[in-house]
Simulated assay, not measured.
Amino acid sequence: MARILIIGGFLAVLFWVFSIVDCAVQPAERHRGVSKAKWVLIVVLLPVIGGILWFAIGRRRPGHDDSPLFRPDDDPEFLRGISRKEQDARIKQLEEELARLDDETDGTDNRS
């Protein structure tokens, strides 16, 4: 039983040190929620729990952006930038595609 506690304690210390180092070396823009200094303080003061919090909610993944994803037709800036003629052409294209899809589903045999 003592061996398990020693190994568990050793693993907890390793995780704690790894969490501190990872939090400290990440650029400030990769820290989510609070500032870099506060994250380091959280990880140092709450050894295992702070590390879990850091990896679960504090660390922003590379290439990950928290901004909402917009398709071009959802983006107000995009809509302001296109002309009325382009908007009408896009609507016509979408209506034609919808009609084509509707025709495909009407032609299928739905026997159970």
Rank of each mutant, 00 (worst) to 15 (best):
M1C: 01
A2W: 02
R3A: 10
R3G: 13
R3W: 03
R3F: 08
I4P: 00
I4R: 09
I6M: 12
I7N: 04
F10N: 02
F10P: 00
F10I: 10
F10L: 15
A12Q: 04
V13M: 13
V13F: 15
F15H: 08
F15A: 06
W16D: 01
W16N: 01
S19N: 02
I20W: 03
I20Y: 04
D22L: 00
C23V: 04
C23D: 01
C23R: 00
A24K: 02
A24F: 08
V25T: 08
V25H: 00
Q26L: 14
P27V: 07
P27Y: 14
A28D: 15
A28E: 15
E29T: 04
H31D: 00
H31S: 05
H31T: 01
G33L: 13
S35V: 08
K36R: 15
K36D: 14
A37M: 14
K38C: 07
K38L: 15
W39S: 13
V40R: 10
L41P: 00
V43W: 07
V43Y: 11
V43K: 07
V43A: 11
V43T: 13
V43P: 13
V44T: 11
L45C: 11
L45W: 06
L46G: 02
I49G: 05
I49N: 04
G50L: 04
G50C: 06
G50N: 05
G50P: 09
G50T: 04
G50F: 06
G51V: 08
L53Q: 12
W54A: 07
F55R: 06
A56D: 06
A56W: 11
I57E: 08
G58L: 10
G58M: 11
R59Y: 09
R59S: 08
R59F: 08
R59N: 10
R59W: 12
R61T: 06
P62A: 14
G63A: 10
H64I: 04
D66R: 03
S67G: 08
S67F: 04
P68C: 04
P68A: 13
L69I: 10
F70R: 09
R71F: 14
D73M: 12
D75T: 04
D75F: 06
D75Q: 02
P76I: 01
P76L: 11
P76E: 05
P76S: 03
F78E: 06
F78Y: 15
G81A: 12
G81M: 09
I82H: 02
I82K: 03
S83D: 07
R84W: 11
R84G: 02
K85N: 02
E86R: 06
Q87W: 09
Q87F: 07
Q87D: 03
D88G: 05
A89K: 03
I91V: 08
I91T: 06
K92Q: 10
Q93M: 09
Q93F: 12
L94K: 08
E95F: 02
E95R: 12
E95W: 01
E96K: 09
E97Y: 03
E97S: 03
L98W: 09
A99D: 12
L101W: 15
D102Q: 13
D103Q: 11
D103A: 15
E104R: 04
E104H: 03
D106H: 03
D106L: 13
D106P: 00
D106Q: 11
G107D: 15
G107A: 14
T108N: 02
T108E: 10
N110C: 06
N110R: 11
R111S: 14
R111G: 10
